[in-house]
Design a protein around this nucleic acid. Structure first.
Length: 990
RNA sequence: GCCCGGGUGGUGAAAUGGUAGACACGAGGGACUUAAAAUCCCUUGGUCCGUAAGGGCUGUGCGGGUUCGAGUCCCGCCCCGGGCACCA
């Protein structure tokens, strides 16, 4: 019987479902292993072949671990809240819940086709009220917590209020305050705290809560009508859609992730994650060590605080620069300079981040007219405003050391400010000296010290003078948490007298209300403001919703106990499953999802809900599977005329709505190589004539004339073609299918040499808009899911990005057929119970060894190759012994579960192969009697000589040198040296 | 600019410091077949010598180095991908 995947795969999918083969129980008797895939956002486009890559790899590991005796949790679900569904809802009026439902059904169908071992009884959806009840609950826990820096732990707000009631609060307790809280919080005594009214108390508490409401600078995206998180903004535009983003100050729910900055950095050292992801997170958190320095103001009370990583260069300070948005600018500027300074501040502030990024070179600034006092020298230092200083970073002010910092140098040079050398051997006439391995040359107590020593000394002095202290600064900002959108978790908060209060836990879930439209109200309120009775006991409810990352920050916990109505997951379940052992997903989530998930995990740990404080021990990032776009070339005419009208080549003739001319890719390439190419030019000229006639017919009246004269470059426009109209060879177009697929080709003139129109291929991101999407369903209907699974793994190392080329799939399909045929003798299932031969055992054990080791190190492409070798060799040996084939089927099962189940059943088993124990290899079957030594001269292999494996190095050397061919090569000379590495190589140095 | 990856045949790729290119795709040749499909066999980095058997040289981005021996280790550069970036 020929291997025919269609029926086999359908049969087993149905059987697995009926038998609940993949259902996982929380069984404390068995060791656990938790394999998690980053759950998908169910988009309308469905899955393409790139999506399942990681799922297949994790499925192989899951199945392998199950064969190895582990109780494996391998769940799947949907991150089903999000912008696209809402945008679609706005356009079509369809409720996002509905489209999400449809999309999920489609995803599920596609996933099922691939034969994953997901336990679907544990499916979660972030948009399901039974799920988001707990997202809201976690939010309330965050709202009810503050961060105790001394203890490095989140604690209940009640402990803080108790502390206020006994100790009050003083700003030197600042360690308790973190993040983007911008209001200055004055000191209060215990008595004052008790005397404060409710409203004041609540406002103070906002500054401590881990989920808090504050006036904050946010990334406002007018086109999307919402606030975006930092990681959702790329180069000043929204990551999704590329809409402009502006900085805006508005009341905003935030998450105090900054409190965890240090722990998020430190925790990385304990994780088996790729170095690049860890580095990305470290960069994103952006820890810098340095000092806070206070420059007392000359003509005003108070001081300017600056953060610097180089307090050792303090003697090189020649001015201080404030960010335009710095609040002291207004305070210190004397009246006579006011107009000029404020004018600059206004322009600088209005420059968008994008503009500021665009011309980094341009120096701009203005002198405030004020001065401050250098803490060491007591000299007056002028205070400037410059937009190279960022308001949102550090203190929004820098001490300028033009001798040691290039940006300060640029500023000083531009405005003619003094530049003092701070380091020995610096040539400050050309540029600043930023070396950190230098010796300080400033006059004073730092002279002669190496930079690190000078830093320590400078900080000591600052502390002594009360002018500064050691400070660690983080780039990480608190995370914006509110979205002015509909399709997200409602924030369980109501307002009394404008003060936010937590909704009682008994009110959860706070369900997403029905609204008439998914748009903001006329007053600009978020869509939830449209909902009827959107209040709690008469108090208005919060109208913003949570961002996409909320639900995904803790979902790994819900899978442990997905139907628990009393708790996000039972303590027993959490204690059993613990951390994710293997987390598989894309590296694009490096600074978003993966950071937030770590943050929430640490928080839940702090508050005692879970016993671990990192979500995933090991993280593997699967590479992207890229698409290979097909580029056709549309010929742009050099010039054209019709009737009296003449266009020249600068006119875009595309105002004619076609038909168009297209030139085959190889002709274009030939022409570009040699524009005099007679044959190509003749073809083009001929086609121009034909096409002109054609246009004349189509548009009537005027005779068209088209030119593509020699002086003009052959101009073409890139036109992407849907890859489904490509023929088998991957470059020529199916001219019948083409006009049906894409109207732009209808009636076109195609310039070809041989009647075959060819395109160029280019590796790009696989996406619908590039017409290069390959749907796994198509592959499966042709070759089956097992072939798809094998092929995706065979393409290359899992972590690498690689282009999809369906052509290579034949190889894995052939392999499965060969494998199948090992069990068949001309259409009859035929497996012998005879003992396997030595050679057969060797193939088997070599394969088990290689595959086992390869799965452990996630090298799936090489394990597939080993299976191919095994099938080829066993085929040559005509092996059909049960003793070989049976263990081999088990080894193949994680990769190709359908065919494995089928053969397993045919071998006489009545239980699923998933319950079979993983085969063990033993070294005795792998020993060789002889080894064929490569004999090399000076490292170059010249011949092979076979010796018994047991032969010692000395005897090998003797026999090698005695060999006539070796002797011939030595030409009678004695070798300088002979290296014999047993079972490896012999190298003769001459 | 800084920080991570990576660069090997026509293509995807393999290789604990020890025979570079396993395994596949593609290509070429052959067998079977009326034919096709399927299957099987051979060749396939480049280049040179030879009628042939066979052999020489060369080859893992570039230039050095360590080593008996380097795709692999070290130093310096070039290119590609990703991250960060007026971050003090």
């Amino acid at each position: 019987m020929q291997y025919d995947p269609k029926d086999i795969e359908r049969k087993w999918r149905e059987k697995w479902q009926a038998d609940k083969t993949y259902q996982v129980l929380n069984d404390p008797a068995k060791p656990k292993y938790y394999v998690l895939d980053m759950f998908p956002y169910p988009s309308g486009a469905g899955l393409h072949v790139g999506h399942p890559l990681g799922y297949i790899a994790s499925d192989i590991v899951s199945r392998y671990k199950r064969h190895s005796g582990f109780n494996v949790l391998h769940p799947m679900g949907y991150d089903s809240f999000g912008l696209p569904a809402e945008q679609y809802a706005i356009q079509t009026g369809q409720h996002p819940a509905k489209t999400t439902e449809v999309n999920i059904a489609r995803y599920r169908e596609q996933l099922d086709n691939i034969g994953f071992s997901f336990d679907w009884s544990r499916e979660v959806r972030t948009s399901d009220p039974a799920y988001y009840k707990w997202t809201q609950w976690i939010f309330l826990q965050l709202f009810d917590s503050w961060y105790d820096h001394a203890a490095q732990q989140a604690k209940p707000i009640a402990e803080l209020t108790a502390r206020f009631a006994t100790q009050g609060w003083h700003p030197t307790d600042a360690c308790a305050l973190t993040g983007d809280v911008e209001e200055e919080l004055g000191a209060f005594t215990a008595a004052e705290w008790t005397a404060f009214d409710e409203r004041t108390q609540q406002r103070i508490l906002q500054q401590f809560r881990l989920a808090y409401l504050s006036e904050a600078w946010v990334n406002w995206c007018p086109a999307l009508g919402t606030v975006l998180a930092n990681d959702e903004v790329k180069d000043g535009v929204s990551e999704r859609g590329g809409h402009p983003v502006e900085r805006k100050r508005m009341p905003q729910w935030s998450m105090r992730i900054t409190a965890y900055a240090q722990r998020l950095i430190d925790g990385l050292d304990t994780l088996d994650w790729s170095e690049s992801i860890k580095e990305a997170q470290r960069n994103w958190i952006g820890r810098s060590e340095g000092a806070l320095v206070r420059f007392a103001l000359k003509n005003a009370p108070g001081h300017i605080e600056v953060f610097t990583t180089r307090p050792d260069t303090l003697f090189g300070v020649t001015f201080v620069t404030l960010a335009p948005e710095h609040e002291l600018v207004e305070v210190i500027t004397p009246a006579e300079r006011r107009a000029e300074v404020m004018a600059y501040v206004t322009t600088a502030k209005n420059r968008s981040e994008r503009d500021r990024m665009a011309d980094v070179k341009k120096v701009s600034g203005v002198f405030t007219g004020a001065t401050c006092i250098h803490p060491f020298t007591g000299q007056e230092v002028p205070v400037w405003v410059g937009d190279y200083v960022l308001g949102g970073y550090g203190t929004g002010a820098v001490m300028a050391v033009p001798g040691g910092d290039q940006r300060d140098w640029n500023f000083a040079t531009h405005f003619g400010l003094p530049i003092i050398a701070v380091t020995e051997g610096a040539d400050i006439s050309k540029e600043a000296d930023e070396r950190k391995d230098a010796i300080i040359c400033s006059e004073g107590f730092l002279k002669g010290l190496a930079v690190p020593d000078a830093i320590t000394r400078a900080i000591d002095e600052l502390v002594k003078l009360g002018a500064g202290e050691r400070r660690i600064n983080y780039r990480l900002r608190d995370a914006a948490f509110g979205r002015q959108r509909y399709w997200g978790e409602p924030i369980p908060i109501y307002y009394k007298d404008g003060v936010p209060y937590a909704l009682p836990e008994s009110e959860l879930p706070l369900k997403l209300p029905e609204v008439d439209k998914f748009l903001p109200t006329a007053e600009g309120e978020p869509p939830l403001a449209r909902a009827a009775n959107w209040n709690y006991q008469g108090h208005p409810l919060e109208t913003t919703t949570m961002p996409g990352w909320a639900g995904s920050s803790w979902y790994f916990l819900r899978y442990m106990d997905p139907h628990n109505a009393e708790r996000f997951a039972s303590p027993e379940a959490v204690n059993y499953w613990q951390q994710v052992d293997l987390y598989m997903g894309g590296s694009e989530h490096a600074t978003g999802h993966l950071l937030y998930m770590r943050f929430w995990t640490k928080f839940l740990h702090d508050r005692g809900w879970i016993s671990f404080d990192e979500p995933a021990k090991k993280l593997v990032n699967q590479g992207m599977i890229q698409g290979v776009s097909a580029k056709a070339y549309r010929l742009l005419y050099g010039s054209m005329s019709w009737g009296d009208h003449v266009t020249d080549e600068t006119d875009d003739p595309s105002h004619l709505t076609g038909p168009y001319m297209f030139i085959s890719a190889e002709l274009r390439a030939d022409w570009l190589k040699n524009e005099e190419d007679v044959e190509v030019n003749r073809l083009i000229d001929h086609a121009l004539e034909r096409h002109a006639e054609h246009l004349t017919q189509v548009y009537g009246e005027f005779p068209f004339k088209l030119f593509c004269d020699g002086s003009a470059q052959l101009k073409t426009a890139r036109k992407l073609v849907d890859i489904s109209v490509l023929k088998e060879d991957g470059v020529s177009l199916d001219m019948e299918a083409l006009p049906l697929k894409d109207a732009e080709f209808r009636g076109g003139t195609f310039i070809t040499r041989d009647g075959v129109f060819r395109v160029d291929r280019e590796v790009e991101k696989m996406s619908k808009s590039k017409f290069n999407v390959v749907n796994p369903d198509d592959i499966i209907s042709k070759y089956g899911a097992d072939t798809l699974r094998l092929y995706e793994m065979f393409l290359g190392p899992i972590e690498q990005s690689k282009p999809w080329d369906t052509n290579g799939i034949e190889g894995t399909f052939r392999f499965l057929r060969k494998f199948w045929n090992l069990f068949y003798e001309s259409d009859v299932f035929s497996v012998s119970d005879e003992a396997p031969t030595k050679a057969e055992f060797k193939v088997l054990h070599a394969t088990i060894k290689k595959v086992t080791e390869d799965i452990e190190r996630m090298s799936f492409n090489t394990s597939v190759a080993q299976f191919m070798i095994a099938a080829n060799e066993l085929g040559s040996l005509k092996c059909n012994r049960r003793g070989v084939l049976e263990p081999l089927v088990i080894a193949l099962a994680p990769f190709a579960p359908h065919i494995a189940e089928e053969l397993w059943e045919k071998l006489g088993h009545t239980t699923s192969i998933t319950t079979a124990a993983w085969p063990q290899w033993s070294a005795e079957h792998l020993v060789e009697d002889n080894f064929s030594y490569p004999i090399s001269f000076n490292g170059k292999t010249r011949l092979q000589l076979e010796f018994p494996i047991a032969l010692d190095a000395k005897s090998v050397e003797e026999q090698v040198l005695a060999n006539p061919e070796v002797q011939a090569r030595l030409e009678g000379k004695a070798p300088k040296k002979v290296i014999v590495v047993p079972k490896r190589i012999v190298n003769i140095v001459v």
